[in-house]
Amino acid sequence: MSHLTHTAEGGEARMVDVGEKNSTSREARAEAYISMAPATLQLVQENGLKKGDVLSVARIAGIQAAKQCGNLIPLCHPLMLNFIGVEFELQPEHNRIRIETCCRLSGKTGVEMEALTAASVSALTIFDMCKAVDKAMCIDSVRVLEKSGGKSGHYIADAE
């Protein structure tokens, strides 16, 4: 494992200087799952919750979250994202919703944190909109699925 880039020699936190790096096309995909009662999932699917269209609101929340990542995560750089995608897959056989996000840019630093933040906040928004009918929901398995671009190269989860 390589050294931690956000830690100085003395152990203190620092922001990485990306000024001398080359701009490259970069993309990251992330996922998260939110498990819920079957009746809750059905309400989401049928758009039957009082707060409104859960997945549309969660999509917008995820997009907004990715754009705010530099303000939320202390050592993240503010990025000019070219694309943010948030998609949902209802999985009734597992009583859950799978969230997949994608962030792209041409820049000097990666977009993994933006993709992870979009997935996390989308899941949190679903929780918020459904909590009145299901307080036992569970968000889990937030992870990077794939990243490309930059010096560290292409990464695909579960391919190693």
Rank of each mutant, 00 (worst) to 15 (best):
L81T: 05
V86D: 12
M80L: 12
V54C: 12
E100C: 14
K67N: 13
G107T: 08
V44N: 04
H77A: 04
G85Y: 02
L41K: 03
A37K: 15
C69A: 15
I73Y: 04
P92G: 10
D53S: 14
G85C: 01
I60F: 03
H94I: 04
K51R: 13
I73T: 03
K108S: 11
G52V: 07
I34D: 11
A39L: 08
R96Y: 00
P74S: 04
L43A: 15
E46N: 13
S106W: 01
A37Q: 14
V44L: 01
R96E: 12
V57D: 00
Q64L: 13
L79W: 03
M80R: 02
P78V: 03
G110H: 09
C76H: 01
L90M: 14
N82G: 14
N47K: 15
A66W: 06
I99Y: 11
K108E: 13
S106Q: 12
G70N: 02
N95T: 05
C76Q: 06
A32T: 07
I60D: 00
I60H: 02
K50T: 02
G107N: 09
K51W: 06
K108V: 13
G48N: 04
H94N: 15
E87V: 01
V86M: 11
C103P: 06
M36L: 14
L72D: 01
V111F: 06
F88N: 10
A37S: 12
T40Y: 10
N82Y: 02
G70R: 02
E87P: 02
E89M: 11
M36V: 07
H77F: 00
L75S: 00
Q68D: 06
G52A: 10
A58P: 08
Y33S: 04
G62M: 07
K50D: 05
I34P: 09
K67T: 06
R96C: 15
Y33N: 05
E87Q: 15
S106E: 14
I63R: 06
E89Q: 15
L105K: 10
T40K: 12
H94S: 13
Q42F: 03
G110L: 06
T40G: 12
Y33C: 08
L105M: 15
Q64P: 02
L75V: 11
K108M: 12
E93P: 02
K50P: 03
Y33G: 05
A58H: 05
A32I: 09
P78L: 08
A39D: 14
I34W: 11
N71Y: 01
